Computed example of a mutant assay.
Amino acid sequence: MNSRLNIIAGFKGGKSYVKDLYVSLPFRVVSVGQRKDDNKLYQMVMSSSPGILDGDHYQLEVSLEQGASLQLQSQSYQRLFNMKDKAVQELNVLMEDDTSFAYVPHPVVPHEDSNFKSQAKINIGKNSQLIISEIITCGRKHYGEVFKLKRFQNLMEIYHENKLVIKDNVLIQPDLIPINSIGNLEQYTHQGTLIFYSTKNDVHKDQLIETVVEDSERVKGEMEIGVSAMENNGFVVRALGHGGEVMYNFFLHIQDILWDLDKKNVEDCVKF
């Protein structure tokens, strides 16, 4: 099935709003931030399908006009079902100047013999910030499907002023790369990546990283967390663990810290 989701976040009168929205089956988009008073836009992507099936091609187009802030949320865990061939998802995000975009979806659950490739291309404008993550699980552990997928790949490219600033490529292919080998996942069953990138001048990157590292102590024993600083105003959080829910909740906590940087100091962030 070829499925499309197109959303344009506009900005008018100091508020972000849905300027245009188009979806085809199985997608549905609903507003979830009615009680927030920050004038930002909160949308949840929902699906009538139980998961991604063989031959599916999902194409998501997201645009933020100047001044807009959009936070996308997912409905539930994303299941990748048994496939004879493969499924593909494309995400294209265009961020104009003075925008904020966040997308921290639920974990992905690859079933046995699933073959999935996700490609994301993001163009970020001036004085803007991006928060985006991904969590990949081992599959249906209680069904004995621990990394019995054929192949999983998530390729992400982030551009600023037509220059590639970040490229992240996660590839899991158990028949080619032993998943439990040294330098790979070793004894862990879940892997997560969260990327924060900002083109603003007043981002206290080192302080933010210190906050994330300090908060990771609360989940020590359940996850291993590492943070890599970028040359510019950004960092990458890598997580390894044995459960998707703990990792997902920790990523949501990081998102909360980063989302309202324009309204609070790092010291005022709620601790995990």
Rank of each mutant, 00 (worst) to 15 (best):
N2W: 01
N2H: 01
N2Q: 02
R4L: 01
K12M: 12
G13I: 09
S16A: 08
K19E: 09
V23W: 04
V23N: 07
S24C: 09
V29Q: 12
V30T: 06
V30A: 13
D38S: 07
N39A: 06
L41I: 15
M46I: 13
S47A: 14
S48C: 14
G51Q: 07
L53N: 14
L53P: 13
D54T: 05
D54K: 04
G55A: 05
G55Y: 01
H57E: 01
Q59L: 00
Q59V: 11
L64S: 06
Q66L: 13
G67I: 13
A68I: 15
S69I: 04
L72A: 10
Y77P: 14
Q78Y: 03
L80N: 03
L80H: 07
L80G: 12
L80D: 05
F81E: 02
A87F: 02
V88W: 00
V93D: 03
D97S: 05
T99H: 06
F101G: 03
V104S: 11
V104W: 02
H106T: 01
P110R: 03
H111C: 11
E112T: 13
S114E: 15
N115Y: 07
F116W: 05
F116A: 03
S118N: 15
Q119R: 13
I124Q: 05
S128T: 08
Q129S: 10
I132L: 13
S133W: 06
E134S: 15
G144P: 11
K150W: 07
F152I: 04
Q153R: 06
Q153Y: 00
N154Y: 12
Y159T: 00
N162M: 10
K163F: 06
K167N: 11
Q173T: 05
I177T: 04
N180M: 05
S181P: 00
G183A: 08
N184K: 10
Q187R: 15
Y188H: 11
T189Q: 04
T189D: 10
H190R: 07
S198V: 14
N201T: 14
N201C: 13
H204E: 14
D206I: 12
E214N: 10
E217W: 07
E224M: 09
S228F: 01
M230Y: 08
M230S: 07
E231P: 00
E231T: 12
G234H: 00
V236A: 04
A239Q: 02
F250D: 05
F251Y: 10
L252K: 15
L252P: 01
Q255A: 09
D256F: 01
D256Y: 01
I257N: 03
I257Q: 05
L258V: 05
W259F: 05
D262L: 04
V266N: 01
E267H: 10
F272S: 06
